[in-house]
Design a protein around this nucleic acid. Structure first.
Lengths: 110, 110
DNA sequence: CGGGTTAGTGTCGATTATCTAGGCATCCCC
DNA sequence: GGGGATGCCTAGATAATCGACACTAACCCG
């Protein structure tokens, strides 16, 4: 039993969302699919993580939302990056670079 | 004033500890110093994270502890990797590799 | 028309790791 | 004897993620 899928995105979810929205505005569902597809199914964003994260980011002014109609004719909340969000993305990208480099150094992989 | 140092090691602490102990057995304090030094101060392990993590790892049978006397003539709890710990280390290393690759793919860095 | 699948948004409770902020003891050196 | 480095440990709070669920609407197929 038990497919254990432990914590897959620890701390990087915000970064992944911001980066996805930097490519183009998307609604939540699409963000989730996008991340999963591009990461080749390594990363999975379940809704219980996604929507709280979107609220968090919106509350901080990094993304903004608007209701639109998708290609399939349905209402969807489309998020896009704000100026502050773009700055935040840059910040988180460099943090990630530093962090992963540091971990690799400890692992002896660098 | 507060220099805020938010979450630096999200989910990688166990990996970092296991890897450090794979080099040679160490006591807690030394592990912390080692990680900080090798990562060039990017990663900092404060004791409030370290000791709970050590108990966790010991409880899972990945490391084992013994009291010894250090070079400076003081009692210290020295941890070393077990066989299971070595396997776990390999597992976590490959998880980390997959994870960071996946994140980089999303970032477009890969 | 009824049922299943996909799209899409959202909530709630629990878990768990980490952080902050301490306490305590020993050794070394001035 | 006092300060600093060494070394171990705990308690409470915080926050992010997970797992499971509830809801609506469109689409496809028989």
């Amino acid at each position: 039993m038990a497919k254990r899928k432990p914590d897959l995105l620890h701390g990087t979810l915000d970064l992944l969302i911001l980066r996805s929205l930097d490519l183009s505005p998307m609604h939540g569902w699409a963000i989730s699919k996008h991340i999963q597809a591009v990461s080749e199914d390594v990363l999975e964003v379940n809704q219980g993580s996604l929507y709280p994260a979107l609220y968090r980011l919106e509350g901080r002014g990094w993304i903004k939302a608007g209701w639109e109609t998708t290609a399939t004719g349905r209402r969807a909340k489309v998020y896009s990056l704000t100026g502050a969000g773009r700055k935040q993305l840059a910040r988180e990208e460099s943090q990630w670079a530093a962090f992963s480099l540091a971990v690799n150094r400890v692992l002896g992989t660098a």
